[in-house]
Each structure stands twice: as C-alpha cells, then as structure tokens.
C-alpha cells in the first residue's frame, strides 16, 4: 500500500472512533475528543481528495460538503431528537447546495421543499407530540455503538478508497464514456435544464410517473387507514405496580390524555425495566 491509502485508512479509523465517541452511550464521556478526532479524520479525507478546479469552486464545494457532513453527524449524534431533526434540515440544505453545484437546480429546490419543508416538518410535529423535551432514556443509549460505528466507517472508507483509486486513474472505458463539455452544455447543463428534465420525465418516463402517483395515493390511503384502525382501546383496569408492561401502559395512558409524558414517570418506567 502506498502513502495516500494509509492516510485514508487512518481517516477511516479516526472516523470510527469519533463516531463511537459522539454517539449516545450509557456513559457518554469524551464527546469533545470525538469532535476533534472527527475533524481530523474529515480533514485527512479532504486532503486526499483531488481539487476540482478553480479555488472559488473548490471553496464553495468544500463549505457545502462540510456543512452537509457535519450536520449529518450532528443529526445522528444529538440526544434531543428535535435538534436532530433541525440538524437534518441543515444537512438537507447542504445537499441542496451540492445539487446546485452539480447544476441540478430543480432537485435542489425539490429537496428543500419536499424534504425540509414537508417531511421534516411533519416529523417535528410528531416529535413535539411524542416527546418535546428530549429527555427520554432511549435517546441516551445506543445499540451496539462500537460495532456499528466501525462497520459504517469501514464501508465509507472502502467506498472512498475505491472511488479515489478508480477515478484518479480512470480506465479508458470510463474516460471514453464521459460526456464532452459540448454535450453537457446541451444536456444536463443546458440553457433550460428544468425544461429538459420535465420533457424527459413526462416523455420517456411517463408510465413511471403515473405509477409513482398511484403509489403516493396508496400511501395516503394506507396512512389514513393505519391511523384510523390501528388505535388501541385503553386497558380496562390499572395494572399492578412493578410490572414493566404495566409501567409502559401507564406511560401510554399519560400520552393518550394529550399531555406530554412527564419525565419523572418515563424515568420511573425505565427504572422498572432494570
């Protein structure tokens, strides 16, 4: 192995340790170290990336990529789900910016409107309904944190290494398959890119659009049906104390009343579960 690949390996391992430190665990100490290590890892990775072109392009891209990735890390590591959701919104904005860099203006707008505007807000509604304070025990505990962080980091590392090594020395086939700037100027980067997208979408892919529309309708009906028929009636009697299931039922009753679940009761339920 040569030098740059060792750097990528180091970046991967650093990323894995950083994610492990940042993720919620029972004893979550060391997150500041995680931030430092993560930053170093990302920096190492960035150092191995080829420059795109002019420094302005590079800096715009780097800023957007950094925002996207950091916001993504924050999304999965923040204890309070409300913050997670907001960080996810930021990550989406960064993605939208990346789409703009690529010349996919319509997608940038669609991502912001559909994801950040609709889906994410709906999730925030639900979060507010369920647990607005972010003090639930399950937000402060992870599942197989170390193994998962390692696995994810290794996948990213392998993908990055492969991508870099393949694309810095592209095969003739891959290079020949690339479009010329002339073609691109008449295609994806054309004068009216959104018009081109629309004509392709409602021309070549018309049936797929219809199917997607049917899928959306089905999802709408399905969601309504789940909510309408999935309700459970409250239990007829108050369960005995000390029963874990009973403790959960109690919590559910509290939620069913429309009040926010009291943190003490949730914690009490968690204590019963020990």
């Amino acid at each position: 192995m040569n030098h740059p690949q060792w750097i990528l390996v180091a970046a991967t391992l650093l990323g894995a340790v950083a994610m492990w430190l940042l993720l919620p665990r029972v004893r979550d100490r060391g997150w500041p170290l995680g931030i430092v290590l993560g930053a170093i890892g990302l920096g190492l990775l960035a150092s191995q990336m080829p420059r795109i072109g002019h420094w302005t392009t590079d800096s715009v891209f780097l800023v957007l990529a950094a925002v996207t990735v950091v916001a993504a890390v924050a999304t999965v590591t923040f204890r309070n789900p409300v913050y997670s959701a907001i960080w996810f919104g930021l990550s989406l904005l960064g993605t939208a910016g990346l789409f703009l860099v690529q010349g996919a203006a319509f997608l940038a707008v669609a991502t912001v409107i559909v994801y950040a505007g609709a889906i994410l807000v709906t999730f925030l509604f639900l979060l507010m309904l369920a647990d607005p304070q972010g003090r639930a025990y399950y937000d402060r505990i992870g599942w197989e944190t170390s193994l998962s962080a390692f696995a994810g980091a290794v996948i990213v590392g392998i993908l990055s290494m492969t991508t870099i090594s393949v694309l810095t020395n592209p095969s003739d086939q891959l290079a020949a398959a690339a479009a010329t700037d002339q073609q691109r100027a008449e295609g994806v980067l054309g004068e009216y890119p959104i018009a081109g997208l629309g004509s392709a979408l409602f021309g070549t892919h018309l049936i797929a659009v219809e199917v997607a529309g049917a899928l959306l309708l089905a999802a709408l009906v399905g969601a309504a049906a789940i909510v309408a028929h999935g309700r459970v009636k409250p239990p007829p009697e108050i369960p005995e104390k000390g029963d874990p299931a009973a403790a959960r039922q109690t919590g559910q009753e509290a939620a069913g009343d429309g009040e926010p679940a009291s943190p003490t009761r949730t914690h009490a339920a968690a204590e019963h579960r020990r």
Partner: peptide, 30 residues
C-alpha cells in the same frame, strides 16, 4: 472526474453516517 470523485465521497459519507445512525439510535424517528 474530480467533481465526480468528490461528490461520490460525499455521498458515501452521507450514506455511512445514515447507516450508523440507523444502526445505533433507538428512537424510531431518528
């Protein structure tokens, strides 16, 4: 090519981070 490389690595990072989050976080919404 460089543009493609950079974007693919960013995509991989997003994918990996999302994967880690899916595997570790216990909140269904997260």
């Amino acid at each position: 090519l460089n543009l493609l490389t950079n974007f693919l690595v960013v995509g991989a990072l997003l994918f990996g981070i999302g994967l880690i989050g899916f595997l570790t976080r216990r909140n269904m919404i997260i």
